[in-house]
């Protein structure tokens, strides 16, 4: 099947005021297929939100895309450089559901006026009445009260605001929705309502796929079809949700799983363990595997060489320890004939 989105070797960096650059996303490649939810998980500061900004085409200074190609619905662009894609891709092909929707809406604009602005941005001829009718229908379709259209953002509760933002983001039926920590500021019932809304958008084929970014692995395991695990700007493991949860390969994925509370009988009563150490300072990254300073299995090689992201039995992982164990070591001796 043709992927909806295929990102290759994306590198993005923040430029600091003193002129230095901090590499926040480092050679990340991933694909999203129609109809699927791809989860991206990682600690804060691992580059998830940066990746969301790059993929949703909203990166702006001081964040700069240094390299990478993006194939979106059959059209390919090179990301580095100035405005390589038409602005109308935003919102129509790919849309962002931002982190912290509390401040995502203009405080002095009614929801209906913003909805009209969104529709008009992509169809200059659109009639105001028609546009508002469309927004109203969409809200009813998703069982949200149409009266929110008349409200100012501060008149909506946090959960309602986030759902309204989700509807506004998908008003133009974008193919891909990039949800960046959409639930992190919400209480549990609002989280569930939002997740259900997103899945319904997918079911009704209003959107084709979702990239769901979160630090909350249990939540992701209920939503995502596949999960990519990010650490220090890189993807260290990418597999189906089932595989990630049942048989994590990378030591970081394992640690992440152990650190979260999964209400299943087999692990009930087990001690929750944190991951020792701190995530690396992105300005001073270790030369080898970035997880090696915190990894219980790290060897000299881990500290020296960076493991590539290798696909083994249909699942990708970047870890020398896993490679050794699988006896499929892509070592230097093998690659030199």
């Amino acid at each position: 099947m043709q992927p909806l989105l295929n990102a290759q070797r994306i590198c993005a960096a923040y430029r600091l005021e003193n002129g230095d650059e901090v590499q926040a996303v480092d050679h990340v490649s991933l694909s999203v297929f129609p109809g699927e939810v791809l989860g991206v998980v990682g600690e804060s500061g691992c580059g998830k939100s940066t990746l969301a900004a790059v993929l949703s085409l909203t990166a702006r200074p001081p964040l700069m895309v240094k390299a990478g190609t993006l194939t979106l619905a059959g059209q390919q662009v090179t990301l580095a450089g100035k405005q390589p894609y038409p602005v109308t891709w935003r919102g129509r092909l790919v849309a962002l559901l931002p982190q912290g929707a509390m401040n995502s809406l203009n405080p002095t604009l009614r929801v209906r006026d913003f909805a009209f602005d969104v529709l008009r941005a992509h169809d200059r001829q659109v009639d105001r009445r028609v546009a508002l009718e469309r927004a109203r229908e969409r809200l009813q379709q998703l069982s949200l009260p149409p009266r929110v259209l008349d409200a100012y953002p501060h008149q909506l509760s946090g959960g309602m605001k986030q759902r309204v933002v989700a509807v506004l983001s998908t008003l133009l039926n974008p193919r891909l929705l990039i949800a960046d920590e959409p639930t992190s500021a919400l209480d549990v019932s609002s989280q569930r309502a939002l997740v259900n809304l997103l899945l319904e958008l997918l079911e009704r084929e209003i959107i084709a796929s979702i990239i769901f970014i979160s630090h909350d692995l249990p939540l992701l395991s209920n939503v995502a079809d596949r999960i990519a695990v990010m650490y220090a700007g890189e993807i260290v493991e990418l597999a189906t949700t089932r595989e990630i949860i049942r048989a994590p390969q990378h030591p970081y994925t394992r640690a992440l799983l152990q650190a979260t509370l999964v209400p299943e009988r087999t692990i009930r009563g087990r001690r929750i363990e944190g991951i020792p150490g701190q995530p690396p300072d992105l300005r001073k990254r270790p030369p080898g595997c970035r997880f090696s300073p915190r990894c219980p299995h790290a060897t000299d090689r881990c500290r020296r060489e960076r493991p590539p992201l290798e696909t083994i039995d249909g699942r990708a992982v970047a870890c020398w320890w896993v490679f050794e164990r699988e006896r499929r070591v892509p070592s230097v001796e093998e690659s030199v004939p």
Binding site: S56, L57, T58, R60, V87, T88, W89, R90, G91, R92, A95, L96, P98, G100, N103, S104, L105, N106, P107, F114, D117, V118, A121, H122, V165, L168, S169, L172
Partner: peptide, 12 residues
């Protein structure tokens, strides 16, 4: 934030 979001939806 709202500026970034509006840009992300392609508003000119």
């Amino acid at each position: 934030d709202y500026v970034n979001y509006a840009r992300g939806l392609g508003i000119p």
